[in-house]
Simulated scan of single mutants.
Amino acid sequence: MDIYYIERKTGKKIKEIVAGDKFLKWIYDTDMGNAILDTFVKKKIFSSIYGKFQDTVFSKKKIADFVEKLSIDMSEAEIENIDEYKNFNDFFARKLKNEARPIDMEKNHLTSPADGRVLAYENIHKDQVIQVKGSFYTLEEFFHDKNMAQIYHNGVCIVIRLCPADYHRFHFPDSGVPYEAKNIKGMYYSVNPIALQRIAKVYCQNKRAITIFESDNFGEIVFAEVGATCVGSIIQTYTPKVHVHKGEEKGYFKFGGSTVVLFLKEGQLKVDEDILKNTQKGIETKVNMGERIGKKL
């Protein structure tokens, strides 16, 4: 299964370079792979062990091949020389130069909280939110909260999937006040489309962190980070109950592709038309952190 996305700046359809694609296809498409997935790979111990290795000095030797294979532009990074990183996770969670990700500061524009591939849905039904075509989950399952599910019924859901090649820090899409993240324990399935097609309710099964964000211009937003296979940790770097500016860092993922999901209440946001049209066709739109993804209604 090849994965394609739309490069927003050019409108071109691009084939995604998938890190570890052979392993993913084997683990999700074969009987033996499925058995190992269920007994080991989806569980915390596998991702914890793998994640801890990325914190060791021995993991440094992976950086050069990773940069070359995934065509990562190191000129955007604060530290361009890969030899200066202490280990792979230090490189993976690298900070970028401010000018590499300009923030759309128009107050009526919601910006992408992360680099990634976006799917967006308006007027979502609390009992049938789309994971991928033909696969659904409920808001109550995602939030572990029946009242919250009702609040976001008919609202907007924006899913930003981060690939291993992407910048892995996430930021606030508006100014406002974030509250303390609620951590929900779970599994560590991949969030790659290969896995999303085969495993039901991945976002509800995986480990995740859910933050209520009282934004200044779009009302209450749920800002959720979803863990995945080989994600060592979801690190929050913000201070709860302290007002933040749009584009300010919220946190970062250690090694592994993962996902940020935003939920907005009904009547707050009109998602940009190109993102909606691509979503309706079942294809993601590649955006950068700080780009506009919708307008205030």
Rank of each mutant, 00 (worst) to 15 (best):
D2P: 15
K12C: 06
K15C: 07
E16F: 05
V18I: 15
A19K: 13
A19S: 12
I27N: 02
T30D: 10
D31Y: 10
D38A: 02
G51C: 08
K52C: 08
K52F: 14
K52D: 08
F53S: 03
Q54W: 00
V57W: 11
F58R: 06
F58W: 13
K60E: 09
K61E: 04
F66W: 08
K69N: 15
I72D: 06
D73H: 07
D73R: 05
S75I: 02
S75L: 09
S75H: 11
E76P: 01
E80D: 12
D83T: 11
D83C: 01
K86N: 15
K86R: 15
R94V: 11
R94M: 12
K95A: 10
L96I: 11
N98R: 13
E99T: 12
E99V: 12
A100N: 07
D104C: 14
E106A: 13
N108C: 03
D115K: 09
R117W: 04
A120H: 11
E122Q: 15
N123I: 01
I124C: 06
K126S: 12
Q128C: 07
V129I: 14
I130P: 00
Q131R: 04
V132L: 08
V132P: 07
K133N: 04
S135F: 00
H144S: 11
Q150H: 05
H153E: 14
N154H: 15
G155E: 04
G155P: 05
C157F: 06
I158Y: 06
I160R: 01
L162W: 08
D166R: 10
D166K: 11
Y167I: 10
R169M: 03
R169G: 04
F170D: 05
H171K: 08
H171E: 06
S175I: 01
G176P: 09
G176E: 09
Y179A: 07
Y179I: 00
E180I: 13
E180P: 04
A181N: 12
K182W: 01
M187W: 03
V191R: 09
I194G: 03
I194F: 01
L196M: 11
R198L: 13
A200K: 15
A200I: 01
Y203C: 02
C204A: 13
C204E: 02
K207W: 13
R208S: 07
R208K: 12
T211C: 13
F213S: 05
F213I: 06
E214G: 00
E214Y: 07
S215A: 08
N217M: 01
N217T: 03
G219D: 05
A224N: 04
E225G: 07
V226A: 05
V226Y: 04
T229G: 02
C230L: 10
C230H: 00
V231L: 08
V231S: 09
I234V: 15
T237A: 07
T239L: 12
P240Y: 11
V242W: 00
V242G: 01
H243A: 14
H243P: 01
H243M: 06
H245V: 06
H245E: 15
H245P: 00
K246Q: 11
E248L: 02
F253L: 08
G256C: 09
G256S: 08
G256T: 09
G257E: 05
V260Y: 00
L262R: 05
L262E: 08
F263M: 03
L264H: 00
K265S: 03
K270G: 02
K270A: 13
K270E: 14
N278G: 01
G282W: 06
E284T: 12
E284Y: 05
K286Q: 14
K286L: 15
M289E: 03
K295A: 10
K295I: 14
L297E: 13
